[in-house]
Design a protein around this nucleic acid. Structure first.
Lengths: 356, 356
DNA sequence: GCCCAGGTCTAAACCGGTTTAGGCACTGTA
DNA sequence: TACAGTGCCTAAACCGGTTTAGACCTGGGC
């Protein structure tokens, strides 16, 4: 009798018909709330007969559990978080995040989970953001992108009791599964490609060495260049088009000691570099070969079209989400490796001018 | 005595110290839970003395309300939603969303609210996404982007009982406040700029006419062209670089009837168009002037740099969020207009070849 | 015939807030 | 002195689920 009277809830004029609650289902099936809960989370201790009756009662009423109620009583959020800590300008220029999020979303949409997004400017604010997401359990886990060297976030998130996956393997001990793409393979393929075209002077415009994937690409470059007996030349940037352009101006500054090919660590920098070269009167690829990374949509639509390294970012997002959900469900999961990045050769690379 | 014993909650080994609850605050302040709630939502009926004691008890314990509990009892979500319905490829190429979201976030971060993101491919799935966000009150309101002609989402969202703001004014009756940027001013300025440079044959590569802002830019183009006695020529696309390139090939197809300037409805298409022109042996801007829209980061880093129309997208996001939060708090708000879009002239536009 | 184990189920506590109904003390008015 | 009104406060219901403690029934082993 202590049950609330569902009908009085509905007496208001006409607004969105009140959702049925678990009590309504219990009443219709002639069982207790508790048993309904058991049946619907299919846990043992419910007879086949009751389960049947409960499920059809739920179906008849069109009942679905209230995430908010579930979230309060079971201390889960049914949401995962993505904290983006990059300068706004750099995020915007880089199609990585939208694509990645679309991939995450494909995986989430079926699961009833939602994606909570936070963009912060790097720094102290970042830790606070994780802290507040965790303190109030607004998310059950997070996807850690843009890993840094000695990334403090790993310890922080562990301490906060959140689940997580990392994009790529961190350089420190991590309790979280990693979902990785072998982008070194892409860099190696790029350098091989250029070497094969006769280039002996190849430079690399790298991202910030504090970012693990930038550092990894750089090391792969140095290794691949070394393998061809080429002295690697590297300029470090923040991944922005502006610094990509500056790095290019620097590299092309001395006409007597100018690389014949430049390997950029992302596409926006490569495009900016292309413009710098053209502005300096060089013809790409006749005078200078250029390669990008990530195979942005635009890469095939510029002139000359840009040789780049393709990674399946959307798939990365989908798999990261899947692994995270499994982790949250405390299914043990292993590190996962995606198919390696592959080179897409286009017009911006050709024979070295010194090697006709 | 029916109060739960907070200490027994804490007996587990050492995990994240249990948060204090409102009951802890009540006990410390020597009042009832209810009064604490009243004091903290500063409602009348609490003596200055008690309020003081309650606030300092809360501060001492470092208490902050549990969003999840609040959300269940007060039927609010403390989150707003953004549903992105575009083809993944187009979203990725367009820096609009990341920038916009960063703007939203700046406004949200202080308010304890959260941004929930959903990306869907356009179509039926979209309505279901709104429906499921609303049914379970996972969000209190949504930001409606990419308005379409006769947009059915407006009625849907109204019916679902969600709050909303629209980006730009819809073409149908809408109960929601609109936050708009006058991008027509940008288009007009672009056409004026070109006309002033002597161009008499100007084409427009438009976005899909089903999208309100694309249609609006197109109409503004036609009007501005008409004002200069220029017969407007328009090709419609889906906003993708691929179709931008195709439209350009089409426009440049007949050497005898080739426009001397092309106004693109976004930057990625303009960049693709630039490449098509260059590939066809034209020199930009000598033979053909080109303009974009949105003033992407890359616009100033290509060669020739791209004349484009700048809008403050991050501010747009911040203001949209602010207006939405006010609407949710049922403060009445008016439609808001941001500073009009302005032309940023760069190298991709110059005198018409026919007008030396 | 007795006891224990296992399976099924219910009642009630619980998550942590908000909100309502009502109690009590004090004041002002008749 | 009685009565209504007001200000402050508490107890308890409530939001809609999950989870625990324990009741009840049945069957098997001895």
């Amino acid at each position: 009798m202590a049950e609330r009277d569902a009908d009085t809830q509905r007496r208001s004029n006409e607004p969105p018909a009140a959702r049925p609650t678990i009590a309504d289902v219990a009443r219709l099936a002639g069982v207790s709330k508790g048993l309904v809960s058991f049946a619907l989370n299919d846990r043992p201790g419910v007879s086949a007969d009751s389960r049947e009756r409960i499920l059809s009662a739920a179906a008849e009423l069109g009942w679905s559990p209230s995430v908010r109620a579930r979230s309060l009583s079971s201390n889960r959020a049914f949401a995962i978080g993505l904290v983006i800590a990059r300068e706004p300008g750099i995020v915007a220029a880089d199609p990585f995040f939208p694509t990645f999020m679309a991939g995450v979303e494909t995986e989430l949409s079926g699961s009833g989970q939602t994606l909570v997004l936070a963009t912060v400017t790097p720094g102290r604010q970042e830790a606070d953001t994780y802290r507040s997401l965790a303190l109030d359990k607004r998310v059950d886990g997070v996807i850690l992108t843009d890993l840094r060297t000695g990334d403090e976030r790993i310890a922080l998130i562990d301490e906060l009791g959140l689940a997580a996956v990392t994009l790529g393997r961190p350089d420190t001990d991590s309790p979280f599964p990693a979902v990785s793409i072998d982008d070194e393979a892409g860099v190696t393929a790029t350098v091989d490609h250029l070497a094969q075209l006769g280039h002996r002077s190849i430079a690399h415009v790298a991202g910030p060495s504090s970012m693990l994937h930038a550092a990894r690409r750089r090391r792969a470059f140095e290794r691949a260049a070394g393998a061809h007996g080429i002295a690697p030349r590297v300029v470090e940037t923040d991944f922005s088009a502006t610094e990509g352009a500056a790095a290019t101006r620097h590299l092309l500054g001395d006409p007597d000691d100018r690389p014949t090919a430049i390997v950029y660590s992302n596409d926006p920098m490569a495009l900016a570099g292309l413009a710098v070269a053209q502005r300096a009167g060089l013809i790409v690829p006749r005078d200078l070969s250029i390669t990008g990374f990530d195979n942005t949509d635009l890469a095939e639509h510029v002139y000359p079209s840009l040789t780049s390294v393709a990674t399946d970012v959307a798939a990365w997002g989908a798999i990261a989400a899947r692994v995270l959900l499994a982790t949250i469900a405390s299914e043990p999961v292993d590190n996962t490796d995606l198919p390696p990045a592959r080179l897409v050769a286009r017009e911006s690379t050709s024979h070295s001018p010194h090697h006709p």
